[in-house]
Amino acid sequence: MSEFVSTAVTSEISAIERQLVERVKRGDEYAIRALIERHRLRLIRTATNLLRDRYEAEDVSQEAFLKAFRTIHKLRDDRAFPGFLYRICVRLCMDRLRSKRPEVAELDPSVPHQSNSVDTRLVIDRLLELLPYDLRTTLVLREMDQLSYEEIAEVMAVPVGTVRSRLHSARLRFRTIYLGEMGQL
């Protein structure tokens, strides 16, 4: 019964979504606002996870909405809008990560490890900064956004095998860096 209700709710949501997208294609500003309202939170969360900067994340999310609405006529299936928007947002984040300063290969050994007092968030920010942008994006989409390998492959426009090997490298590097950062566990 609950499965039936959930299926009915899902199809109703996708019908609303489809209608909104159709209206946006006709230039309806009310529908534009409605779609922003529906999707902004998810975009900002994903962009924050990737960029580790809330304000830059809002900026990228706005850019993603703009790009999506300007190219919405390319969308064949109106139900695919959430994925279309999400892909644009992740790719914009990757562009920003790519253009940022090159990552440092090793942590600075002169910085003392204070495992008891460190702010977890800062440690994670630092660990992610040390990963190349493609490994970082793959790891964040998998571990934080909980996307499947296939979904990551689609978003990043790479084969599933590449996602597997990137995740392997990302986790390996992540644990090596973490071990170095925290010293003895």
Binding site: L41, I44, N49, I124, L128, M144, D145, R175, L179, L185
Partner: peptide, 19 residues
């Protein structure tokens, strides 16, 4: 190394944005 991975990935998941 394995403990570092388990703890590190837990921290990573725990630091997901909740705005």
């Amino acid at each position: 190394a394995y403990r570092a991975q388990v703890i590190g990935l837990d921290l990573l998941r725990g630091s997901a944005c909740t705005v």
